[in-house]
């Protein structure tokens, strides 16, 4: 697996004002807090993409990584705009912290991945029936578990993935599922966004991890960069 150099990793976050260590209630991340989240996210993503490479039996190249805080209303733009028809593999995770994992593909790309997974000749899959959904769900299982295991091991936490749901729908409708939970606690959504592809470019997609506010609080407390009441 190849990962772009650090210069390609977009990290967002504010500079921490002097004398403002710890003890904050809002969830805007300062740069040092974003660094903690990004180090963890990288471990998870590396492991998830290694899982994907094994599944499709090809080298997977990470094209971009970014960690950002976006207003909830702009979240569907992360997956091509609210009306764009996509295939999403969606799972939640629970345990010591909670959040959402979403793997998004254009339908024709998802069909190509299904062909790889099922050993079909390229171009055979043209629709999303039960067998095809199972293949993508299994992919979601592997990628989700790889990602969560890496993070759980780092933090000595327990994180359990849900069974994946495979959905063909408007991107906005799929994003609603994750965003609805986040907006109960925050007007912004934190997201780690990874775009990836195989060398032959058949298997490309976007891998989103959307932690809940509690997840962010837990990892920041764990790392010691934030104390809360």
């Amino acid at each position: 697996m190849n990962r772009p150099g650090n210069s390609n990793l977009e990290e967002h976050g504010r500079n921490r004002p002097e004398g403002r260590e710890g003890m904050r209630e809002d969830m805007t991340l300062y740069k040092d807090e974003m660094r903690v989240w990004s180090n963890l996210a990288l471990k998870g993503i590396d492991n998830a993409m290694a899982g994907l490479a094994t599944m499709v039996n090809q080298q997977v190249r990470i094209k971009s990584l970014s960690l950002r805080q976006v207003p909830a209303r702009e979240a569907p733009q992360l997956v091509g705009g609210p009306e764009k028809l996509v295939i999403g593999i969606y799972l939640t995770f629970t345990g010591d912290a909670t959040g959402h994992i979403l793997l998004v593909h254009q339908p024709e790309v998802a069909f190509a991945i299904i062909d790889m997974l099922l050993g079909n000749p390229p171009g055979k899959t043209q629709s999303l029936e039960e067998m095809e959904q199972s293949a993508l769900a299994e992919l979601g299982n592997v990628i989700g578990s790889c990602y969560l295991n890496a993070i759980a091991d780092s933090l000595n936490m327990s994180l359990r993935p849900s069974p994946p749901d495979v959905i063909l729908d408007m991107a906005g409708a799929i994003m609603d599922v994750a965003v609805v939970e986040i907006v109960q606690e925050s007007d912004d959504v934190f997201v780690s966004e990874t775009t990836f592809g195989t060398d032959d470019r058949q298997a490309s997609g976007t891998f989103l991890v959307i932690p809940s506010v509690s997840f962010l609080r837990i990892i920041l407390e764990h790392s010691g960069v934030r104390q809360t009441c």
């Binding site: 629970t94 909670t98 849900s162 749901d165 959905i167 409708a173 599922v177 939970e181």
Partner: peptide
């Protein structure tokens, strides 16, 4: 008000 997933979602939702 659609139910887009077939059940994968946080329990409180």
């Amino acid at each position: 008000g659609a139910a887009v997933t077939r059940g994968t979602m946080p329990e409180n939702l």
